[in-house]
Simulated assay, not measured.
Amino acid sequence: MPASPTSPAPISLLDLPAQHAPIQAELEAALRHVLDEAAFIQGPAVQLFAQELSEYLGGPHVITCANGTDALQLALMSLALPPGAEVIVPAFTYVATLEAAAVLGLRPVPADVLPDTFGLDPAAVAAALTPRTGAIVAVHLFGQCADLEALRRLADEHGVALIEDNAQAIGATFTTAQGHTWPAGTVGEVGTTSFFPSKNLGGFGDGGALFTRDATRAERLRQLANHGQRRKYHHEHVGLNSRLDTLQAALLRVKLRYLDHWTAARQRAAAHYDAALAGRPGLLPPARDPRSTHVFHQYTVQVADEPGRRDDLQRHLAAHGVPSAVYYPLPVHQQPAYEYLGYMPGQFPVAERLCRTVLSLPIHPTLSLEQAAYVGKVLESWNQ
């Protein structure tokens, strides 16, 4: 058995104070500017942030909102689907993907995911399509794109909308067979993202945004996010009160300037983990789709599907000061809130197996290479 590794500085799953420390002066200046202006709702920083994020993503319309779940709901509202219309979602995802459809009276229809990259399986989506399907929601899970080319083709062939849940993969890109590069979140009729603090581009509270290349849809989304009004007190649609605070926008403007730098740091840490896991029996590193970049919102391994194996690895990591987390421990079709959909255990075997076997390791921009190397050594010392 390998010798027990020596721990470096304490390791956390997320270290926001360390990430913010080098830019603290910029953040404080942005905060003071908003406080001085006192335009806390729809202040100038909101539009400036939307413009800058649009430029970063290659020019789509950007509509800011209160959080990532609202963004998904607003995206579906913009489609004006009839009650009971079906929305295909991954069986392996965070519950908000289903929630946004369910609260609108739409029917979430889970489809299984690919066993290596965790994205929607296009073959499973094709099998789930019916005349009642109104939309496909592709989740770019853990930091890389779902198969955008195949899903875009399926949506076009069947006349349904493609929505991209890009909360975990902002800055990722997908390259098509023809060599076109698509920024994640800009390929569907609407893309969505979240600025929850733990995200790669995280705020200091809740926040979200939508992306679309359709100017008419962008205007509709702006109205839907603002009580359904084009101008004050004139309400054309039933909408939401979903706005990004000016304070959040100002702080996010600062952080957007550093996003690529932080992404590169995540990718360096991931490369260290890859090297430690190479050829390691019983542990699979996250697969890479060669058509997609990976921005590593999470570095998620798969542990051999044997009773107690993942728990044993978690205990081993914790005993050596390495935190870990399970995203997600229960597939969406087995959540009590969605029992009404009528799905049974065994219907989505890949998603169910992933919920038993995935484990996410620490990865964030301030994880030092020494810390990443230490995590690798702890993995190597695991006595299976």
Rank of each mutant, 00 (worst) to 15 (best):
E149V: 03
A150M: 10
A150R: 13
L151A: 08
L151V: 11
L151W: 03
R152D: 13
R153A: 11
A155L: 13
H158C: 09
G159P: 02
A161R: 04
A161Q: 07
L162F: 07
L162H: 04
I163G: 02
E164G: 03
N166G: 11
N166V: 14
A167H: 12
Q168C: 09
Q168F: 14
A169I: 08
I170H: 09
G171V: 12
A172L: 13
A172Y: 06
T173F: 06
T175M: 02
T176S: 08
A177N: 07
H180F: 11
T181Q: 03
T181C: 00
P183H: 06
A184W: 02
A184G: 09
G185H: 04
T186G: 05
V187I: 11
G188T: 04
V190F: 03
V190T: 06
G191D: 05
T193G: 09
S194T: 00
F195Y: 13
F195I: 04
F195C: 05
F195Q: 04
P197W: 15
P197S: 12
S198N: 12
K199V: 10
G202W: 08
G203I: 06
F204R: 14
G205A: 15
D206A: 09
G207V: 00
T212I: 04
D214H: 02
D214S: 01
A215V: 10
R217C: 06
E219F: 05
L221C: 05
R222C: 08
R222D: 09
Q223D: 05
Q223M: 15
L224Y: 00
A225N: 04
A225I: 03
N226A: 01
N226D: 04
Q229K: 08
R230S: 12
R230Q: 15
K232S: 12
Y233W: 15
